[in-house]
Nucleic acid binder design. Structure first.
Lengths: 190, 190, 190, 190
DNA sequence: AATGAATGAGCATTCATTCAT
DNA sequence: TATGAATGAATGCTCATTCAT
């Protein structure tokens, strides 16, 4: 049996979903409330039963469809394992997470509406990567000096890859960063 | 003496300039034709003497205010010099060029996924960096294997730094990439 | 014990009360059904159990919250007493009655919805005053010629005083009317 | 020949006129911008070329269609003449002025309690009447004591007469006020 | 009796664009 | 070249009302 409240909750999520898809397709400004309502097979008026304004809906999409938890989870999954072995995997998992939330990522890039949210994601993502690298530095696997630059470069490469549609070469990126942080490359230094 | 054509050209550039500023301030969708006209001290109607549509104006801004030439110039300025010495400078010049065109950069980010103008910039920028690195590889200073990843990482780090407002640490980034590409780090490999 | 019918009656009155207050605060057009329902701590749907439409609710407020009975009562309270002594009191009682129903009075003035109701009040009020004056004329205290104008002037002065928020000077108004109707003023005629 | 500016001025006045008529017919809230535009045979958008908002239009109507100047003119026309002779005429002229601006008067009544425009009219109207009465008091024709009440009663009677649609009896009102202010009535005092 | 999800029509307002002047 | 009046379509949003629960 479906209670009133359950159905309302479902409808709300349906609207958030429709909004996310429509925003991603047309941009936040480009997507009209009517567009979103139509995508949800609903009248525009109903939208205002669930959200105070379009702005409110944007905020809901950003908050409720965020992938920060998934990003954080990546850290614990790979903690303690050698960087040489898992950095490619970590980057790839990273890349996959962005891909799985492509709509939201494109939203982050597209407008200033999402500036704070975007910064949150960047900060969190870099922290996740940085934490892992630091643990490897403490384990003596990596030199600690360039960890910040390395975390930044990994995230930035993956993110820009998504923005341009030309995904990054995960293995090359991992190697570059590992060698850059002191891991001995198979080719000798020049 | 000012010819008719010169004056027309001047007017056109004034409109493009006003559009660039207004787009950067309010976003492309957020800036109305009236806003732009006011910023140029001109009536909306006049805009349509010089441009067929708002879209046309956007295209003009993107094309005519591009910084691709400046980017390309960086290459020749630094060609032939040792990467260890000039990579930080090259990245910094890169960063400065984006900073000098902050309005346009924020515009690029706000364009939709597939926008050709954005892709052009990314491609060109990476090519510039890549060309330089390749020349250093040919000179025997760097290993050639990870050049693509390195160019990508440099561009991405700088660009994301601009988008988030937290500029990248140029020297660290340069070191990371140099060591990653085979330059012997001062600290021994692990 | 509370019967069903009693409870229904109570609910109805609660709604009328909430409507009156909300109408006075926001105007009839400015008050939404939702506003009224919220003021009554009730959902909009329930309103339609008790009233067919918003218009119906307006009518109910106008009819059921009228102060015609109170106005009529004023007459019997003062009947038979000398005009010189009680006219100030009568006007003041009049003024007080309007003040006690300020919400409804402001409603009367504010919209054309209330035109018929407003006319009723004006007519009744003038009749009350006029009846009293006529009784005094028959008692030989006042001249009968200008009774209509006098009743009209008294009501109008008080009513406009409420509309503008600058209440009338009751004693001066009483004197003016009394002298105008033949009562000998303390100052000699010119 | 009609200049651009003249035509614009004409259009503006046409819109104010259409607004006045429409407001009077449907009330301020009841008249939609579309209604007004249709009454002016114009698209709603054009309205916003001339006025910033509906509120702005209301203000323009109230200011530009005011009858304060006409009201003030009445004073000078009748100054210096005996009250006994001209008070009926003054009241009648007053009444006629309101009648000639019936639309605006009904608008004034529909404004909220504290509305500045309404207060201005009331104050000015009463001042006009009061000034005249004071001049007659100084000329020794009237007693000065009840001038305020008299001016108020005259204005209120005329105004309420318009609001209810039952116009006041001008001669009776004039007599009432004159006798009330000390002019010797033809009937002796009681 | 009471809820609140849902609708459809309407509202004030904005805007890119056109065009007579 | 330049103006700005004018339009028509769209936008975000509100609201009276209905109805299944």
């Amino acid at each position: 049996m479906v209670t009133r409240q359950e159905q309302a909750e479902r409808r709300r999520e349906q609207l958030v979903e429709a909004a996310l898809v429509t925003f991603a397709r047309k941009g936040i400004d480009g997507a009209s409330v009517k567009d979103i309502a139509e995508a949800a097979n609903v009248t525009p008026g109903l939208l205002y039963h669930y959200f105070d304004s379009k702005e409110d809906l944007v905020a809901a999409v950003l908050e409720e469809r965020g992938f920060l938890p998934q990003l954080r989870a990546l850290l614990s999954e790979h903690a303690g394992q050698s960087a040489a072995a898992v950095l490619p995997e970590l980057i790839r998992a990273f890349d996959d997470t962005l891909a799985a939330h492509a709509d939201l990522v494109s939203l982050f890039f597209s407008t200033s509406h999402a500036d704070a949210a975007f910064r949150d994601v960047v900060t969190t993502a870099q922290n996740v990567l940085q934490s892992y690298l630091e643990s490897r530095a403490q384990a003596g696997e990596l030199r600690p000096e360039l960890i910040g630059a390395a975390a930044g470069a990994m995230f930035a490469s993956v993110a820009i890859g998504h923005k341009t549609g030309r995904r990054v070469d995960v293995d090359e990126l991992a190697q570059l960063v590992l060698y850059g942080m002191g891991l001995q490359p198979p080719f000798g230094g020049s």
